[in-house]
């Protein structure tokens, strides 16, 4: 009987198809595994939260272990399902990282443009990826927290007055105690330096702000563009059943599509 029950999945698949345009063979989304790496507090979780929920939290708690989120995106005519592994930057979780990047097709390595050290950390992640991850992994180097210096840079450019209160409405200073205060933040990593490094190492390079959203969607779009989607799609199909993760593409897809269709009364299987 449990066999029959599992044919509920087939119903689900029909349901999923119904949500797409009739008959035009709704392309199954291409599943892409993306891992985020980088030093603690550079904004990995914030970037993911901005990308997935379009939200920002001023005092995001440090990630424990790793968080897994998914987001579907459309690139031209292709639907992509991004499986995002948001890893913890804290040192004690370092040894777990290979588990997350091992199968990843793409990696977002994040640093904080106001903290030079975090770029060093990013570089060592990139080295590790180049040694140990899939050989054709697409890596994006991302300098985050652009909003912290954007005003300064504009003001400098415009030779404006040094009125530090200009952006007082930007955020609630009161509960910013854990983050470093907004004012007095200076860029420690020049765009040109990081870009040069990225080009030399064959990486995508972007600067972002999880707070304003600047560059966030672009990061994932750039990655998607650089990926060999045809290759991935055919690999996904060919994935052997024994492999970690092989079955889950189906399950995610089906259960999402079939939610509304499913009206099984809880039939007893025995």
């Amino acid at each position: 009987m449990s066999q029959q029950n599992s044919s509920g999945n087939r119903d689900g698949s029909a349901g999923a198809a119904n949500t797409g345009p009739p008959h035009s063979a709704p392309a199954k989304p291409i599943q892409i595994k993306v891992v985020l790496l980088g030093d603690a507090a550079v904004g990995k979780s914030s970037l993911v939260l901005r990308f997935v929920n379009d939200e920002f939290q001023e005092n995001k708690e440090p990630t424990i272990g790793a968080a897994f989120l998914t987001q579907k995106v459309r690139l031209d005519d292709t639907v992509l399902k991004l499986d995002l592994w948001d890893t913890a930057g804290q040192e004690r979780f370092h040894s777990l990282a290979p588990m997350y990047y091992r199968n990843a097709q793409a990696a977002v390595v994040v640093y904080d443009i106001t903290r030079a050290q975090s770029l060093d950390r990013a570089k060592s992640w990139i080295k590790e990826l180049q040694r140990q991850a899939k050989p054709n992994i697409v890596i994006a180097l991302v300098g985050n927290k652009l909003d912290l210096v954007a005003d300064q840079e504009n003001e400098e450019a415009e030779d404006a007055d040094a009125d530090a209160d200009a952006d007082a409405d930007a955020d609630a200073d009161t509960d910013a105690e854990h983050t470093t205060a907004t004012e007095g933040k200076e860029r420690q990593v020049q765009t040109s330096t990081a870009r040069a490094y990225a080009e030399e190492s064959g990486l995508l390079f972007l600067e972002t702000s999880a707070k304003t959203g600047e560059g966030v969607v672009e990061t994932f779009t750039e990655i998607a563009k650089k990926l060999d989607l045809n290759q991935i799609a055919s690999n996904n199909q060919a994935a052997r059943p024994g492999q970690l993760n092989s079955g889950s593409a189906n399950v995610n897809f089906l259960s999402e599509g079939s939610q509304s269709e499913q009206r099984n009364t809880d039939g007893c299987a025995c």
């Binding site: 997935v52 995001k60 424990i64």
Partner: peptide
């Protein structure tokens, strides 16, 4: 903890 409210988490 709030940190677990969104997404799925996996930790030792």
């Amino acid at each position: 903890s709030n940190v677990f409210m969104t997404g799925e988490h996996w930790t030792p």
